[in-house]
Design a binder for these strands. Structure first.
Length: 630
DNA sequence: GGACTAAACATCAAACGGTC
DNA sequence: GACCGTTTGATGTTTAGTCC
């Protein structure tokens, strides 16, 4: 009678999956008197292969899956072009890497009988870290299991579905697949399956830590109860509870981590882990100076099986909904601790109880609000002024900018596909009153810009200019969880507007001429582009030629002598539904726009009545618009 | 696979200089 | 003054490579 079966070993971090694999090898070797060439241990990569070889002391043949595919294809003389030796034994060049890509798919296509004969001598095949293999590799593993169906070979597969952090290597449709949940279906009918769950955590004896990890598995990962640790959770000591601490910025977070490390004593073995390399940069130089090699930095992906007495998992992120790997990556990072775990973050705050049972956790919130939010009255409606004449000049649109160095964390700004701007990723957001505004991140200059428009409606609702500025700054602040001082948002552009009624084109033209002459009189400015004048007089000229949406548009560019980019722009245009290609109709309301970009300005008597103009100018001066706009 | 970056490449319109 | 072609600097798009 043939003894053949597939054994699946499931277990969370620290439950000894790999040790169990080694034990099985020792047991089977003794029982069946197996030789090293009859036992195959498949590791995920070369690094783990070396570790396994050291641990197994020559008891088994150790290979990566690529190496196994190579030897199988070599057995039937069907190797991919350009590949002549075992990929475990050399560092591949670019050409060989290309050949390696086709290695696994080609091996998957092998005839069962060929693969069976290639695997011929093996009586026991152990595949560890099953969670790290993607669907392409798993197809090959299935093929290997099938090839063993008619032999006496026993197959052992070990892994943990919650440690699957490489799903970005998968195609989109497979990204959310959990191969462990499907494992029994996948191998059904191929071999009889025996499943074993390992639930005792041998890595840590800290009950609070086990409790915290169990609650994370339960709440964030919705893991099978059979994967949770069954260690007895009692006698919880308060100062051994994992610490979850929120910070306003990365520097403060790093300060805290080093302070704790020094408190623990420099002889302790410490790991600092994060999801991204960018979150570890801040630690790189300091760790060399302080720790003399007793602490190391790794990303959760790169740590592979590491553990330490004290683990600092920094840059914890909570937005797991649209990120298949994030929740698992957090778990892998947090489960490396033997004695105590510190979780820190300066990313957006989250509700701890969504992830942990707070009974097992010490939560400290250092994300104090920098400045209390100023109360501004709610905006009642969002009616946009069109034909109604505003009584005063008012702010129409505003831009605020803030440097990345002035914000506590990098908040990703989504790319807006229709706008097709790669360097200026723009995200459209909505205020509580339904008014839209946009946020863009300029990668070149590393700064965020907030743009608000159609603000005439706020004026109509009785808002003063100062109120408008404050409420918009508060809106910007909300984008960073209210952790930025409002004064850090520099106002870089203000468009003022007012609505004027002109009875005919003559009056309109004459107004534009007066505007132009006034600017000439001032002398401080220089109208460099003479043709701009033609635009306003001769609608049919360049305006049509360059396909301007509205031929009635008048633009006068005025450049300051000293700096090219300190410019004042005047625009006058009629509302879209009133466009006439040759002249302005009687009773057309024209919107006048006055932009001030990057500088403080003097008051000029440019509008017919300027009742509110002075206060606006003083406001702008108050904002101290910086000259450096580029 | 997708987020991210830098560099190459493409496009736009102001500025300029010339002609009629 | 009106017009028009070329130059030029700024800005937008594509692409290839890195990283997890």
């Amino acid at each position: 009678m043939k003894i053949q079966k597939l054994k699946m070993i499931f277990g969370s971090p620290g439950t000894g999956k790999t040790k169990k694999c080694y034990d099985e090898i020792v047991r089977e070797a003794k029982q069946q008197n197996l030789q090293p060439n009859e036992i195959l241990y498949v590791s995920f990569n070369r690094e783990l292969k070396i570790k396994a070889e050291q641990r197994l002391c020559g008891m088994a043949t150790v290979k990566t899956l690529h190496s196994l595919a190579f030897s199988s294809l070599n057995h039937v003389h069907d190797l991919p072009e350009g590949l002549t030796s075992d990929p475990d034994n050399f560092l591949p060049t670019t050409e060989v890497k290309q050949a390696l890509k086709s290695l696994i798919p080609q091996a998957t296509k092998m005839q069962n009988s060929d693969l069976s004969s290639a695997l011929g001598t093996f009586k026991l095949i152990v595949i560890d870290e099953f969670n790290d293999f993607n669907s392409e590799f798993i197809s090959f593993i299935r093929k290997v299991v099938e090839a063993c169906a008619d032999t006496t070979t026993k197959v052992i597969i070990a892994g943990d579905p919650n440690q699957r952090i490489n799903s970005y290597l998968e195609s989109k449709q497979n990204r959310h697949k959990n191969y462990f949940d499907e494992a029994e279906v996948m191998f059904e009918g191929v071999l009889p399956i025996e499943t074993e769950y390992l639930q005792q955590n041998y890595r840590t004896a800290n009950p609070a830590l086990i409790g915290a990890l169990n609650s994370y598995m339960n709440r964030a990962l919705q893991a099978d109860s059979k994967l949770q640790y069954d260690n007895e959770i009692r006698d919880i000591v308060n100062n051994r509870k994992p610490v979850l601490r929120f910070f306003t910025d990365k520097n403060k977070e790093a300060d805290y981590v080093f302070q704790q490390i020094q408190r623990l004593g420099l002889s302790q073995r410490v790991l600092i882990l994060a999801r991204y390399k960018r979150d570890l940069k801040i630690y790189e130089d300091r760790i060399r100076q302080v720790m003399h090699g007793n602490a190391s930095l790794h990303t959760a992906h790169a740590q592979k099986g590491l553990e330490a007495d004290y683990v600092f998992y920094v840059g914890f992120q909570a937005e797991i909904k649209n990120d298949a790997d994030l929740a698992n990556t957090n778990f892998v990072g947090m489960s490396r601790a033997r004695k105590k775990l510190y979780i820190t973050t300066s990313y957006p705050k989250f509700e701890p109880s969504e992830f942990f049972d707070t009974e097992y956790l010490n939560v400290i919130d250092s994300q104090t609000v920098v400045e209390p939010e100023r109360k501004v009255p709610a905006i009642k409606s969002n009616k946009i002024l069109t034909t109604t004449k505003a009584s005063k000049s008012c702010i129409d649109s505003i831009s605020f900018t803030i440097d990345q160095s002035d914000v506590p964390f990098f908040r990703y700004v989504k790319q807006n596909a229709p706008m097709k701007k790669r360097f200026h990723n723009i995200e459209k957001l909505e205020m509580e009153n339904g008014m839209e505004y946009s946020v863009e991140f300029n990668h070149k200059h590393k700064r965020y810009t907030f743009n608000f428009w159609n603000l005439c409606s706020m004026k109509k609702n009785g808002f003063g200019d100062e109120q408008i500025l404050h409420s918009l700054r508060n809106e910007c602040r909300k984008f960073f969880d209210c952790r930025v001082d409002t004064s850090k948002f520099r106002c870089t552009r203000i468009d003022l507007c007012r609505f004027e009624k002109f009875s005919d084109a003559f009056e309109y033209n004459s107004y534009c001429h007066r505007l132009k002459n006034k600017l000439k009189e001032l002398g401080e400015y220089d109208i460099r582009d003479g043709r701009a004048e033609y635009k306003e007089i001769n609608y049919g000229n360049q305006c049509n030629k360059v396909n301007m949406p509205n031929p009635a548009e008048t633009t006068v560019y005025v450049n300051h002598h000293k700096s090219k980019y300190d410019k004042i722009t005047f625009k006058a245009y009629s509302p879209k539904n009133k466009v006439n290609h040759n002249r302005i109709d009687d009773d057309t309301t024209v919107k006048l726009e006055f932009s001030i970009v990057g500088r403080t300005v003097r008051r000029y008597d440019l509008f017919r009545d300027n009742t509110d103009f002075e206060s606006l100018i003083s406001l702008i001066q108050h904002d101290q618009i910086k000259k450096k706009f580029r």
